[in-house]
Nucleic acid binder design. Sequence first.
DNA 1: TCTTTGCTTGACGTTGACGTAAACGTTAGG
DNA 2: CCTAACGTTTACGTCAACGTCAAGCAAAGA
Lengths: 137, 137
Amino acid sequence: MNRTFTIRQLTKEFDVTARTLRFYEDEGLIAPERRGQTRIYASRDRARIILILRGRRVGFSLGEIREILDLYDTHHDGGVTQTLHARKKFEEQLHKLERQKIDIEDSLTELKRAITTIDDAVAKGQLPPQAHQVAAE
Amino acid sequence: MNRTFTIRQLTKEFDVTARTLRFYEDEGLIAPERRGQTRIYASRDRARIILILRGRRVGFSLGEIREILDLYDTHHDGGVTQTLHARKKFEEQLHKLERQKIDIEDSLTELKRAITTIDDAVAKGQLPPQAHQVAAE
DNA sequence: TCTTTGCTTGACGTTGACGTAAACGTTAGG
DNA sequence: CCTAACGTTTACGTCAACGTCAAGCAAAGA
């Protein structure tokens, strides 16, 4: 199908501003074609945007994300050395994410503990009565 | 045991700078006692630092972290309304982290796929010969 | 006493990731 | 033909989360 997209479509789909997409272009993360002046995004660009945004959500900097995207680009046409270097980098990211996953799981159990603690207190009515409205209303 | 700690000990234990701990204090995230001028951290402060640093690693802003810490503080002595508000906030954080966990898991499978792709290519020798050194060295 | 070492408080600098505003071209509808 | 609505570039602004001095106190050892 290899569709194309306008900047407007992508901003709506991913809930980012046009400024953000242009900024990513300036930073070399995407490289949409041009019809005259206006940007025209291909499926490839869209796929990269998905990776970028997810990368951000999991805490990668744009610099790290660019590195990853470059790796995807170059480990196909690169020589053995390039490719093995890419492999190493991928594994580094992998370990970083695995550590992060543990942090998240720890946080999740702690939050759940806090919530059940609250629920127990509420159930047993172990809470001071709520302060009333201050005065004249 | 309710130990106490110096700023130096904590910087070493958690690999942060003293500047960072003082900054967190300025932001109201911790409130160590003073012996004269110098800060003297209690176990409570240390526990909060652990939460702060983990919060950072999973992508919370200091503002969000302060909110969470406040919730831990106030859902004990607060009235019913306060406490239920805290519960709601905790659940929000919970959902945010669960979404993030999914992002991380997606990223992990993608990274693993990339790595096995590389390994397959290497195993089958489907790689162009490595470019040689440029010229005079 | 002198010096070193550690702690302190400002105050300004920095970096990343955009926001915002100005000033202008382009295309579709009324 | 006019005007909206959308697009563009360029440039400066901003906010968070610290880093980096500068300048000083305070206890401890030589």
